[in-house]
Design a protein around this nucleic acid. Structure first.
Lengths: 336, 336
DNA sequence: GATGATATTGACAGCGCTGTCAGTCATTGT
DNA sequence: ACAATGACTGACAGCGCTGTCAATATCATC
C-alpha cells in the first residue's frame, strides 16, 4: 500500500493542503506545523506521486535533451552538466535523440508534442536548425539552445568558435608559422564554418596568404584527418609547417599519418585541434587544442529553462573557452 | 487550449473510454470506430497527457538509467541502445547518475523512491553493488542489470569477460607469444577481475608461466598504461613479446610509450586491449581488441524490463563478444 | 479596544485519463 | 425460435495531488 498525502495529513493532524504546502516549500506555514508535517512524512516514508502532482499542477518536472549523436565525449559532458542542474531543481533529464534528417520530417511535430516535458535543451548540431526552433515555438514548448551561433529568440548558451579559432591561429602565427594549413569540418555545422572563419581572419590580419590547396575538407572523423594529411604532407618540397584541424579527431588523424611518414611533431610540424576531447591527451605528443566548457553549457542551458529570472533571450550567454597549449605545437622550423 | 480526450470523443461521436481504447490499441473496437477516432484525433492534433495517463494507470512510461560515469563511449552506447528500445515501447529514458560512493549512503533509498519510474536499468560499475540491488528490491522497483557477472535474481544482461579474455590470450599464444604481460584493471570492478582470470586460464592451459613481474596493476586510464609499459619495457634484456591490457585506454598508453622507445608494433611487440572504444581505431597501428555489444546490452536490458514475457531471471542473457584482430598484434618475434 | 492588515489553515473541486462493470447488439448453437 | 456466447460500447468513479477561495487566528496601529 502506497502512502499518500492524505495519510501524512492524518498523521500530522493537518489538512492535505497544508502537507502539500510544506512539501513544496511554500511560504506561510507555521514553523511548528512544518516540522510536524516533515516528521510525519518521514515516519511514513512518504514520497509524492509525480504523476498526480504533474496532473494537478500541469508540470512534469522533466527536461528533455534533444540531440543527434554528437561525439560520445561531447554528449557525455553536456548531459552531465544538464543532469546536475536538473537535480538542483528537483528535475530529471530525459533523452530524446532526433536525427537531423528527421527534423524536417512529418512525424517530428507529433513526437515533440507527445513529449510533455517542462522544457527542452537543444544541443548541436540540431541547434543549427531554424526549422526545429520554429516547430518548438509553434507548439509552445519552452526551450533553450546550446549553439555555436545565436539564432531565433530563445535563450542561448554560446561559445565563440570564431574567436577561439582566431586565437589558436594567432598562437601558431606567433610561434613563427607562416605556412599554415587548415582542415575544415562539415560545412553544415555552423561551428565548423566559424572555426574556419576565425582562421581566415587571423591569417588576413597577419597578412599571410591562405593557400587554397592547404585548405582541406573534412568531416570531423579521424579518417578524414588522415586523408587530408596525406594530401598535405606527401609533397616534401611544399609542406606546411603547421596544420590546424577543426577538431581533435582530425588532428589525431594528422598525427597518425605524420608518424607513419616519420615526420616528428612538433619539430617538423605543429598540429592543433579543437574541442579538447579525451583523445587530445591520449595521442603523443599531447595535442594543443581549444577546451570548450561543455558541462557548463549544459548546466546553463537548464538553468535558463527552469529559473528564468534574469534571462534575457536577446543576450545569449557567452562562455569562455580556453586555449590549451600542450606539446603538439612548437616554434616554426624555417628549414621548410 | 489543450485538446483533451473529451474533445476527441465528441468529435468522433463516441465515449471517452472508446477513444482511450483506440489510443491504447486495446482489442474489441470496431474497425470503423477505430478509424473514426483516429481521424478525429489527428484532426484535432490531439496528444495524450502523460501525467493524467500515468495517474490513472499508475504507470509513468519512464525507465531510469542508473550509472556512475563510465567512459563516455560506453555510456553513450549503452544509452543509445536503451533509448532505442524505450522508443519502441513508447517509453522514455531518464538519466540518474549515482556515484558509487553514494550507494551505501543514507539518501539513496529516498532518492530511488522518489524516482517513480516503471523500471530501472543498472549499469556497471553500479551493477557490482549487491547493496544497491537489495535496496531496489526492498523498495519494490523493477530493475534489470547490465553486469559483468550475474548477481541477485534480477534479469541480467551479461557478457562473458572471462571467456573473452581467454580467447584474446589464446590469440596471442597462437601467434607464438610465450612471454606475455598483463595490465590489470581496478580490482574493484568484477569485469577486470574476470579479464585477468581469463588470461590466467589461457596461460595455464598452454602451460606457460605467468611471471609475477609481468602482471601490472592499472586503473583503466591511459596514464596507468604508460606507467605499466615503462616498467614492462625498460629492461631491454627481459621484455615481453606481447602485452595484454585490460582495456583499450591502457593499451593506448602502452603503444604511446612503446613509440617513444622506438619499439615498433607489432614487429617488436604485440599489444591488445579490451572494449573496442573509438580510440582503438585512432591509434596507429589500429588496436586488436574485444568488442562488446554494448548497445545491444542496453536494448536487452530495457526489453527485459518492459516485455517480461519469456524472461527467466535465473538465466541471464549472455551476449556474444567479438575478437577484433587489427594491426597491433602479430607473430611473435623470437629474437627476444 | 477597535480596525485593518497579514499570517495560517482547510474545504472543495477538479487536472485528463483509465479501470470496472454493466449494457447493447449481433452471432452461434440447438 | 430462444438462450448463450462474444463483440462492442459507454457511464461513472476515482488515481493523488494542487489551485482557488474562503475562514480563522494573530498582530500592529492609533
Amino acid at each position: 500500500m502506497k502512502t499518500t498525502i492524505t495519510d501524512v495529513a492524518k498523521q500530522a493532524g493537518v489538512s492535505m493542503k497544508t502537507v502539500s504546502r510544506v512539501l513544496n516549500n511554500e511560504p506561510n506555514v507555521a514553523k511548528t506545523t512544518r516540522e510536524r508535517v516533515m516528521q510525519a512524512a518521514s515516519d511514513l516514508n512518504y514520497t509524492p506521486n509525480l504523476a498526480a502532482r504533474g496532473l494537478a499542477s500541469s508540470r512534469s518536472y522533466l527536461i528533455a535533451l534533444l540531440y543527434d549523436n554528437p561525439s560520445p565525449s561531447y554528449l557525455s559532458n553536456l548531459q552531465h552538466g544538464a543532469v546536475e542542474a536538473c537535480r538542483r531543481y528537483g528535475y530529471h533529464l530525459v533523452l530524446e535523440p532526433i536525427l537531423i534528417e528527421e527534423v524536417e520530417g512529418p512525424g517530428l511535430e507529433a513526437r515533440l508534442r507527445r513529449l510533455s516535458v517542462d522544457g527542452i535543451v537543444v544541443a548541436p548540431p540540431l541547434s543549427d536548425s531554424a526549422h526545429l526552433m520554429g516547430v518548438l515555438s509553434k507548439i509552445g514548448l519552452r526551450y533553450s539552445v546550446v549553439a555555436p551561433a545565436s539564432i531565433g529568440d530563445a535563450p542561448t548558451v554560446f561559445m565563440d568558435n570564431t574567436e577561439a579559432a582566431f586565437m589558436m591561429s594567432r598562437h601558431l602565427i606567433e610561434m613563427g608559422h607562416r605556412e599554415i594549413a587548415f582542415i575544415k569540418g562539415p560545412t553544415t555545422h555552423s561551428s565548423s564554418v566559424q572555426r574556419f572563419a576565425g582562421f581566415t581572419k587571423a591569417m588576413k590580419e597577419a597578412e599571410l596568404p591562405i593557400r587554397e590547396q592547404w585548405v582541406k575538407p573534412g568531416d570531423f572523423t579521424v579518417q578524414s584527418g588522415v586523408d587530408a594529411a596525406r594530401e598535405l604532407l606527401s609533397d616534401q618540397s611544399e609542406r606546411p609547417t603547421a596544420i590546424f584541424a577543426a577538431n581533435d579527431d582530425m588532428a589525431a588523424g594528422v598525427m597518425t599519418f605524420a608518424a607513419r611518414l616519420g615526420i616528428s611533431i612538433p619539430e617538423d610540424l605543429s598540429v592543433c585541434g579543437f574541442d579538447d576531447t579525451p583523445i587530445a591527451q591520449i595521442v603523443w605528443p599531447k595535442l594543443t587544442t581549444i577546451a570548450q566548457p561543455i558541462q557548463e553549457m549544459g548546466r546553463r542551458a537548464v538553468d535558463m529553462l527552469i529559473d528564468r529570472s534574469g534571462v534575457d533571450p536577446s543576450k545569449p550567454k557567452t562562455l569562455e573557452f580556453k586555449l590549451i597549449s600542450r606539446d603538439s605545437t612548437g616554434l616554426a622550423n624555417d628549414v621548410a
